[in-house]
Nucleic acid binder design. Structure first.
Length: 452
RNA sequence: GUGGGUGUAGCUCAGCUGGUAGAGCAUCGCGUUGUGGUCGCGAGGGUCGCGGGUUCAAGCCCCGUCACUCACCCCA
């Protein structure tokens, strides 16, 4: 009797990768981590849950997108309890702010940390949008005052990581929220958040619809036109300042924002020419950003949306007495890898770490094959022993299916020595497991682009 | 949460006006008695998402439901 068939279905928004895809993701994780550490960011991990009270009120739809957590056995009236209600974190910035407050006495400031973890958002999944995904964050937090130059440093670190990854050309768009805020106040639009939210859709729905929505929200035609004129400004140098001045609006908040953004763009233009752009339409949804904000798009794939975003927050971490202002930026690794794999054919050269399959001649000699494998591993060559003493043709096919480049044949040489075969070329040579050199390119799975 | 689309083999999909469930790819076996890939032959694999209804008869029509998916909202 066979057991009844069980229907297995994916859970929408909770992606799982095939082995080759996971190798691509691991390569991205390794690279990002290496670059973060090269810049002196220290690793931190926070728990997956926070009291829902702390997750609330961060702007956007944080409330309805937060997953609550409770024991299945708990009755409804027990949920919460002494620990309060818990929710899964929806980003890494809010938990980090809490972590800083909790450990302020044991940390040294300015505190530079990186954090690579899963986050959860209870929204409707779409292409490149998931309910469970991995973010790779860097943040710098200081006590009381945060040096403005770190706002320029964040995107430069990201630029270095991206340059080492097969993502092609990219642009990091930078804005300072005080620019639109001061500008809107200067033209008499007092609903800054609401206006930002509408203007943020510019790239998606176009200027006409944005203007219509602004008017619907209470702006005059003139105000809508001015807001759009500001959002249209986009330069890769500091000339955006003159363009804003030419619009003839003045407000102290606007001035502060222009000065700050000019410093970031100026630094970027010198240290990473062509990657940073001042884009005055970038707004960001989360309410806690107070100054500089970042978004990142891959050139040619702008419709994917941002794959790396962040900004400055001045009051997210505060115990009421001391405030810890910070700035951070976060790579949406799951989105980035998923899109590169599905849209640009990124994959791995094989589906297993093994570079060598050690063949088994017969079950009586399995131990000899095991000894070969041990000798290879001792010298850092990932390998596995064939699962059965099948015909050599089948053992070779086992390796071929997985992309394992070499098959090792114990005792195949004339004098009873071993031989190793490169199954791509068919070349088979005498070899000794204690001296054989695996070509460096074959030692680990490589990230490659699928042909076609 | 709101609105549309789609559910048939592991994957991609056919399936006519309702009449006994199909193809390609993949998998496994044999040809090829210990060196793969090509080629040839063969085999296995299905509660047609689930539940109900109409009908002599439903993969097909109707209702419901679930899942997936696209758009909105929002965002990495």
């Amino acid at each position: 009797m066979t057991p009844p068939a069980v229907k297995v279905t994916p859970v929408s928004g909770f992606p799982e990768l095939l082995p080759t895809e996971r190798f691509v993701e691991l390569h991205f994780l390794d690279t990002v981590r290496e670059v973060f550490e090269l810049h002196g960011f220290t690793p931190v991990e926070t728990r997956a849950v926070e009291p829902v009270e702390r997750l609330r009120g961060q702007g956007g739809d944080a409330d309805k997108e937060t997953y609550g957590i409770h024991r299945l056995a708990a009755r409804a009236d027990e949920r919460g309890g002494s620990d309060g209600e818990l929710g899964l974190h929806f980003d890494l910035t809010v938990p980090f702010a809490r972590y800083v407050l909790e450990n302020a006495a044991r940390l040294s400031f300015p505190f530079r940390r990186y954090q690579i973890q899963k986050v959860w958002r209870g929204e409707r999944p779409q292409e490149g949008r998931f309910r469970e995904f991995t973010q790779a964050d860097i943040d710098v937090v200081d006590i009381g005052e945060l040096a403005p130059h770190v706002e320029a440093e964040m995107p430069l670190v990201i630029a270095e990581a991206f340059r080492r990854l097969p993502v092609g050309e990219f642009r990091i768009q930078v804005n300072d929220r005080r620019i639109p805020e001061g500008f809107y106040l200067g033209i008499g639009l007092t609903d800054v958040a609401g206006t930002l939210r509408i203007v943020d859709k510019l790239a998606k729905i176009g200027p006409d619809k944005v203007a219509a929505q602004l008017v619907e929200a209470g702006a005059t035609d003139e105000q809508a036109a001015q807001a759009l004129a500001l959002a249209a400004i986009r330069t890769d140098d500091v000339s955006f300042v003159e363009q804003v001045r030419a619009l003839g609006i003045s407000h102290p908040t606007l001035d502060a924002g222009l000065e700050s953004l000019a410093a970031v763009i100026d630094t970027g233009a010198r240290r990473a020419p062509g990657t940073l752009v001042a884009d005055l339409s970038v707004a960001r949804g989360l309410d806690y950003y107070t100054g500089t904000v970042y978004e990142t798009q891959l050139v040619g794939s702008e419709d994917w949306g941002s794959v790396c975003s962040g900004g400055r927050y001045d009051s997210l971490a505060s115990d009421g007495r001391t405030t810890y202002p910070g700035v951070g930026i976060s790579i949406g690794l799951t989105r980035l890898v998923h899109l590169l794999v599905t849209k640009r054919g990124l994959t791995a050269s094989r589906s297993t770490p093994a570079a060598v399959l050690v063949a088994v001649v017969d079950e009586e000699s399995r131990e000899r094959s095991g000894a070969v494998a041990a000798a290879l591993r001792a010298r850092g060559v990932p390998c596995e022993v064939a699962p059965s003493a099948a015909k050599f043709g089948k053992q070779i096919r086992y390796a071929d299916r997985r992309g394992i480049p070499y098959v090792w044949f114990p005792g195949a040489g004339d004098g009873g020595g071993d031989q190793v075969k490169d199954i791509r070329s068919g070349e088979q040579l005498d070899a000794d497991a204690t001296t054989w050199e695996c070509p460096a390119d074959d030692l680990r799975p490589a990230v490659v682009t699928r042909a076609g």
